[in-house]
Design a binder for these strands. Structure first.
Lengths: 244, 244
DNA sequence: GCTGAGATTGCAAAATACGCAACGCGCGTT
DNA sequence: AACGCGCGTTGCGTATTTTGCAATCTCAGC
C-alpha cells in the first residue's frame, strides 16, 4: 500500500540477516541507490538502522527498545519468565515459550541450554504447526473450524523422515494432544532433536501460550526426555496459576 | 527525508509505549486517519504491527525476530552473555551491558537482580553519559576530540543532587575513570542506587563495551558495592579475553 | 430496527519520492 | 605520485505515490 514504507521494511528484514552495503541493498530491492540511501537515512535518524565506520548498514538499537516493549505487552511472557528460568536451570535444556498470533505460533521467548547446542529457532519467528511441540499444542487449542481450515492450508514440509505429512495424520495427532494435555515432537522438525510441549491456560482454561523443552538426541533419548514431562507440566501449571 | 516512512517509524515508537487505536494514532501524529490506516496496513502485512480483535494496534512479532537478529549482530553481547549471567548469579545484583553507538551509550543487555527492584533502564535505550557508570566508561574511551564535542553538547540534566553538572567536573571525572580503569555512579542517576562499571576491550585494547553492576542503597551502601569491584573486573577481563 | 462511532474506499490534487547523471572522496594500482 | 575505480552523496525535473476529504460501510448498543 505504501511503497516507500514497504521497501523500508524490506530493508529491515534484509538487515536482519546480516549487515549490508548500500549497493547490496539496492540490488536486493531492485531500486536505485538513491532511494535506498534516503530510506536508510530516515531510519538512521530514528536509530532503527545504524552504520559502522566502513559504511555497512546494520539494525539499530531502537529495535531493541521496541522489542523489549513489545514483550512486556505480552502478559504471558512476563508471568512465565521466572518459571521458564527455573525450568531451564533445573533441566539444563533449551526452553521455548510460544503464543498464538494471527494464525501462527510465534516464539516469544527462548532460553538456551547450558550446552550451547544451536537450535534453529528464534524469538519472533513462527513455529511450524505440524511438527513442533508448541505448534501442535497451540493449534490443538484453536476453534475446530479454524483448525480444519489451517490443516487444509499447511504445506506439510517434510523436515525429517518423521515429519507428519498430511491433514489426516495431523488430525489424529491433535486428538492425542488434546487428550493427554501435552504434545511431543520426536525428531519431526530437526533430526536428532526431541521436544515436549504443554499449554499455559488462563483462569477460564483458555490456552494462552505453550512451553516446550528441546533436547538433542545425543544428550537424552526420547524416553529420557519424557522423564522431564513432570517438570514441564509443573511449570505450565505454575505459570497458569500466576496468570490469574 | 521520507515522510511516510518517518511517520511509520513514529507509529512504531508510539506503539512501543502501549497499544493504540487508529484514531489515537492519527491524533498523535496529527495526520488523517486514512493515512495512518494505510501505513498500518503495510506494516501489518509484514507482521511489524498486529491488531487484536477490538481493532487496537500493537507491535508485531516481526520486531522480536529483528531485535533478536540485531542482538546477535552485536558480537560483544554473544561473548559476554555467559559471563554476565555468572556475575548476576554470584552478586545477585542487576547487571548491564552497554556499547557505544553513534555518539550514545546504548544498553544492549540487562539481567535483573534477584530482588526484583525495578530500575529505570531498558535494553535499547541510551544511557546518560554524565551520570551512569557505563556512560562514563564508554565516553572516557572515545577519541578526545569527540569527548570534548560531546561534553559541550550534553544537557547535564540533574537527576539527583549528586549528578555531575558541567563539562569541567565531567572532564575531571573521566580522567579518574581512565586512570583507575573503572567508573562509579554514586546515586548520580537514580537516588539510592549506586553503580560501578568497567570496560570490555578487544585484542588491541580498544573499548568495545561496558559492564556495570547496580545496587539499591538499602541492600548495600557504596563501600559495600565497591567490594564487588573484583568480581566486576574479573568479569570484564574474562569477556575481553573471550573476545579474542 | 435505528443510531452512531469507528473503519474503510474512491477520487482528484499535489506533495513527495523517484531515478538520472554528475560530483566527491578515499583507496588500491600501476 | 598520478590515475582510476568503487562507492557514497547531491541537485533537479518528472510523475508516481501519497494524502486528505467526503461518502460509504460495518457493527454494536439501545
Amino acid at each position: 500500500m505504501s511503497q516507500s514504507l514497504a521497501r523500508a521494511l524490506q530493508i529491515l528484514a534484509s538487515l536482519g540477516e546480516g549487515d549490508r552495503s548500500l549497493d547490496e541493498l539496492a540490488a536486493e530491492l531492485d531500486v536505485h541507490k538513491t532511494t535506498v540511501l534516503r530510506l536508510l537515512r530516515t531510519m538512521e535518524a530514528d536509530r532503527f538502522v545504524r552504520r559502522d565506520e566502513s559504511y555497512r548498514y546494520r539494525l539499530g538499537s531502537r529495535l531493541f527498545a521496541l522489542a523489549d516493549a513489545a514483550r512486556e505487552q505480552h502478559v504471558v511472557r512476563e508471568v512465565a519468565s521466572p518459571h521458564l528460568r527455573q525450568l531451564n536451570l533445573k533441566t539444563g535444556q533449551t526452553v521455548h515459550l510460544a503464543v498464538w498470533e494471527n494464525g501462527e505460533a510465534i516464539y516469544i521467548d527462548k532460553l538456551d541450554s547450558v550446552q550451547s547446542v544451536r537450535m534453529y529457532s528464534r524469538v519472533g519467528v513462527p513455529a511450524a504447526l505440524h511438527c513442533t511441540a508448541v505448534g501442535k499444542v497451540l493449534l490443538a487449542a484453536q476453534p475446530l473450524r479454524q483448525q480444519e481450515t489451517l490443516m487444509g492450508m499447511l504445506d506439510y514440509h517434510s523436515y525429517t523422515r518423521h515429519t507428519i505429512s498430511g491433514p489426516e495424520e495431523l488430525r489424529a495427532e491433535l486428538d492425542v494432544v488434546r487428550a493427554q494435555g501435552w504434545a511431543a515432537d520426536r525428531a519431526e522438525h530437526e533430526a536428532f532433536i526431541n521436544c515436549i510441549g504443554a499449554p499455559v491456560t488462563d483462569h477460564d482454561g483458555r490456552v494462552v501460550g505453550a512451553v516446550s523443552i528441546s533436547v538433542p538426541d545425543l544428550l537424552l533419548n526420547y524416553d529420557q526426555v519424557l522423564e522431564l514431562l513432570p517438570d514441564l507440566l509443573a511449570t505450565t501449571k505454575a505459570i497458569s496459576a500466576d496468570y490469574n
